[in-house]
Amino acid sequence: ENSKITAYNVSAGQLTEDYIRPQSDTVIHLFSNVLDIIEFERHNIASILNSDMSHNHILVCVSPFYQENGRGALMDEFGNMLRSMRCEYKLEKHTDDWKNPFSCQVRIFVSAYY
């Protein structure tokens, strides 16, 4: 009820710290099907998140699971950029790993001091 949801219609490279001015101590960020896009400007977002030590950040990241090192490694590369966070949860399912006709990878990163 008291949560505020804010969506931005700008590219990741256009985001600034002014866009992320949380009003609560804990902020949940959802990244769905963007971290596996090569052109997605993940460095800018990581830089903004690394500079904010006054909030607890939880990042929920979801994309298809690619077994190759190109697009498949981008989510972990993003996680490695987050100096102030740790990976709390990791899931990888290829289409051969279960009954479903799709693949999935999930990472949940949390502030190291959370």
Rank of each mutant, 00 (worst) to 15 (best):
E39I: 06
E39H: 13
E39S: 11
E39Q: 13
F40W: 14
F40L: 06
E41G: 06
R42M: 03
H43M: 08
H43K: 12
H43Y: 15
I45Q: 07
I45F: 03
A46Q: 09
A46E: 08
S47C: 11
S47Q: 12
I48Q: 05
I48H: 09
I48W: 10
I48Y: 10
L49I: 15
N50T: 09
N50M: 09
M53C: 09
M53F: 15
S54I: 10
S54N: 14
S54R: 05
S54M: 12
S54H: 12
H55I: 03
H55T: 03
H55P: 01
H57Y: 14
I58M: 11
I58D: 08
L59K: 02
V60E: 08
C61H: 03
C61M: 13
V62Y: 03
V62I: 10
S63Y: 04
S63M: 10
S63G: 13
P64S: 13
P64G: 10
P64M: 14
F65I: 07
Y66H: 09
Y66G: 07
Y66F: 10
Q67C: 04
Q67M: 15
Q67A: 06
E68S: 10
N69R: 12
G70H: 02
G70R: 01
R71D: 09
R71T: 07
R71N: 09
G72L: 05
G72N: 05
G72C: 06
A73N: 08
A73V: 04
L74S: 01
L74P: 01
L74Y: 00
L74C: 03
M75G: 07
M75I: 11
M75C: 10
D76C: 07
D76P: 01
D76W: 00
D76F: 02
D76G: 06
